[in-house]
Amino acid sequence: MKSYNFMLPQPGKKEVLVKQNYIFEPCFDGTRVLLYKNDDKIILLNRKSKNISYKYPEFNSAWTNINADSAVLDGVIVVLDKDKKPSLNLLQQREILDTSRDILAKSKEIPATLFVFDALELFEADFTSTTLDRRKEKLREIIRENENFRVMPYIGNGREVWTEMQKLGVEGVIAKDIRSEYQDGKSWAWMKIENIKKANCFIVGYAGDKTFADSPVLTLILGFFSDKQVKYAGRTEIDLGFGKGFDDFLSKKLIARIKKEKLNRKETPFLPEEDIEKLKKIYAGKQIMWLMPSIVAQVKHFGFTENSELIKPVFMRLRDDKWGEDCVLEKKDFQ
């Protein structure tokens, strides 16, 4: 069984929703994985090629859902709320866990669902050069669905899927050319039409109470790469108390991550000098703690300013499946 890289979509516009020879799938907020099955063993690799199988014990028996001795499938892990809608808050509660006791308890309290949507390899035969419509047929043939292991639904009417995704308030729609092969990296054969503007940024620092004790509000300072240079992306606030998407447990986990990546006084912050001076003026009288740019946060936003900063970024979740180097925005993103 060989290893594979993810096929990734390019950004698309609503005009794509009426394309011929395309199918349209929901784009759920979740964690993308490649599932490797070998007999009764299941391995889940995220975008970092990190094995995250231990985080989702509910999929240990997923080999029984796949009627093939060996397989490599592409899919997305989501956590559904009581209304059967994908929930980023619930997903974050699963992703941030790292002890077997906590993981097992949460897997029973808020179990995840894996939606598979592509077959890269079956019975040790490489299917990546096969057309998408044929790969979809093979996927349907080998999958036995249950509540936590499903085949991603799709139809040929993009506008209908778009309308449903707007009602659900989820990420958007993926348009896929049924004649396309499975390719390594980004391809125009797949296009993502976003319902919500989102960006992945690395956290370069935070402002506020150094000990996190006096203020429940944590201000995260965000950055990204543009034209191979580090850029200041803006700042977003997180209420570390209850009722704001974080509970005490998640707050402690986030704070522990931040403390681990804190720079010492002799180390240079990962931002241009003009951005550092601007932030010092904004937070005059407060202390700014700088971090290694290794923690990735996903935010939703309302576009960009003339200075290429995010407008009103709102924290959504941490992205443990992303590297800081993945936080790249190009000039086209600001248009």
Rank of each mutant, 00 (worst) to 15 (best):
N89M: 08
I255F: 11
T131R: 15
M7P: 12
I255Y: 15
L35Y: 11
F115Y: 15
S53L: 02
Y36M: 13
F149G: 06
D275Y: 00
C327H: 04
T211K: 15
E160L: 11
S100V: 10
F225Q: 02
P11S: 08
F6R: 12
D321H: 06
L329H: 12
L114T: 00
G285Y: 00
D74Q: 09
A233V: 08
A68C: 08
K262A: 15
N157T: 05
K280E: 10
I142N: 06
D81S: 11
K106V: 14
P293I: 03
L139N: 01
R317I: 04
G185S: 09
K41M: 11
W162D: 14
V16M: 15
Y182V: 04
W188R: 10
R319Y: 08
D320H: 09
G158H: 03
T236E: 09
G324M: 06
N38L: 12
Y283V: 00
G158Y: 03
S308F: 05
F224M: 02
K176E: 02
K266N: 12
P272S: 01
V314F: 08
L310I: 04
D214P: 05
F225M: 13
F249L: 13
D39Y: 09
F212L: 07
R140S: 13
G30I: 01
L80I: 03
P272L: 02
N60F: 12
D98I: 03
I221M: 02
K48Y: 10
E121R: 07
G169N: 11
K228C: 05
K13W: 05
K50G: 12
R319W: 07
L318C: 04
D214K: 13
E325C: 11
M191S: 14
W290S: 09
D214E: 10
K286W: 02
Y182E: 03
I255K: 15
S107E: 08
E160D: 07
D209W: 03
L318N: 00
N195R: 04
D275N: 09
K231G: 01
K266F: 11
A213D: 11
I193Q: 09
I77E: 01
F127D: 05
L8C: 06
I103W: 04
S3H: 06
E237L: 07
K85T: 15
I142M: 05
L80S: 03
K167A: 09
I196P: 06
A62W: 09
R179Y: 15
L73C: 03
G205W: 00
V16K: 15
K331R: 14
P57F: 09
W290K: 13
A233P: 02
V217M: 10
A125S: 09
G30V: 00
F24Q: 09
D102C: 07
I238N: 00
R32N: 14
S226Y: 04
N264P: 02
L91H: 13
Q20L: 12
D320V: 02
K312Y: 13
E124C: 04
V151K: 00
E274K: 14
V16S: 14
Q93G: 15
L97Q: 14
R32V: 11
N46D: 15
R319A: 02
D227Q: 14
N5C: 08
C327Q: 09
P216W: 03
Q166T: 14
K138C: 06
